[in-house]
């Protein structure tokens, strides 16, 4: 390889790898910094509806004004704490349900024959071909008092009066499990499919019954998939806005809805921004710690 090749290769790599980072920088990091900036200001009437962070005063004095009032609001009004906790609770339950439903599905797909496997994977991905909004909207038709589900249960004689499912936390849970299930199934499938089946034969050979072999071999080896799938479900579920807005009721407190209300109804940009920043910190820190521990535990399993 000549020196020219080396230079070309290095530049080639930079050129290929650069655009995604530039994209993230411009459209994620910069806006996020702006959100942090807004969260540190005070709400005012006007355009924009918040005080500036930096100000040039008389005699070339640079004034930096950091207002922590918005974050204070988060602690003083317990509405926010409730909303955070409820978001975490619903997201955790939804993640757990996705895992319970998704693991057997992923296992079955990973162990199916090659021709069937592609079809099954296609079916998992099929819902993405319709708009997310429309699919969630369709659940209203299923869950409402005179909807399909209640109609079926009444017809079967299981219930006498229609159940109130729509506008409850349960409806939100159903919607989230439905929407996020593919995000659990796909990473689980990827790890289960990679697994060397001779390991299960070895376990059987060493005197291990099938269920015990699943517990002591398959499950620990699929941990990376469980973690990846859980994060992919849990993180967006915590900040979910559309599903609680459409399927939840007025008492369904979720942080995504609060954020919306602060921003569009109260027009309090600083508090809305503080809610967003707090949510990110609440999610990112534990996830990072968890992933580091996970990385150490599963070191060398592939």
């Amino acid at each position: 390889m000549t020196a020219l090749d080396r230079v070309a290769r290095r530049w080639g790599r930079l050129i290929v790898g650069f655009p995604p980072y530039v994209w993230l920088l411009i459209f994620f990091l910069v806006p996020f910094l702006i959100v942090i900036k807004i969260s540190l200001s005070q709400a005012v009437m006007g355009i924009p509806p918040y005080t500036p962070l930096l100000e040039w005063g008389e005699g070339a004095v640079l004034t930096i004004r950091i207002a922590l009032g918005s974050f204070g609001t988060l602690f003083s009004d317990e509405l926010y704490a409730f909303a955070y906790l409820n978001s975490l609770r619903l997201a955790a339950i939804a993640t757990f349900c996705c895992l319970l439903l998704g693991y057997p599905a992923a296992y079955a797909i990973a162990r199916s024959s090659h021709s069937v496997r592609n079809l099954l994977l296609l079916l998992v991905a099929l819902p993405f071909w319709t708009s997310f909004l429309i699919r969630v909207y369709a659940w209203i038709g299923i869950l409402k008092t005179e909807g399909l589900l209640n109609g079926l249960l009444l017809w079967l004689g299981i219930i006498d009066t229609p159940l109130q499912i729509l506008e409850t936390d349960l409806a939100v849970l159903i919607g989230m499990v439905y929407s996020y299930l593919p995000f659990m199934v796909l990473p689980l499938f990827a790890t289960l499919e990679k697994m060397d089946l001779s390991l299960l034969e070895a376990a059987a050979d060493l005197g291990c019954r099938p269920f015990q072999a699943f517990i002591s071999v398959t499950l620990p080896l699929s941990l990376p998939g469980i973690v990846a799938g859980s994060l992919l479900v849990f993180i967006p579920a915590v900040g979910e806005f559309v599903i609680p807005d459409l399927l939840g009721g007025p008492d369904t407190l979720m942080i995504g809805k609060i954020l919306w209300a602060e921003f569009f109804d109260n027009r309090d940009w600083p508090v809305a921004s503080a809610v967003a920043v707090a949510m990110l910190i609440l999610l990112v820190v534990p996830v990072m710690v968890f992933q580091r521990l996970q990385g150490r535990a599963t070191e060398g399993t592939r």
Partner: peptide, 20 residues
Amino acid sequence: IPPYERPVNMMFQSYALFPH
């Protein structure tokens, strides 16, 4: 008799050691 009840053990070509 299933493999887990046979008085034989097998050494696999890939060794099949449990990586975890």
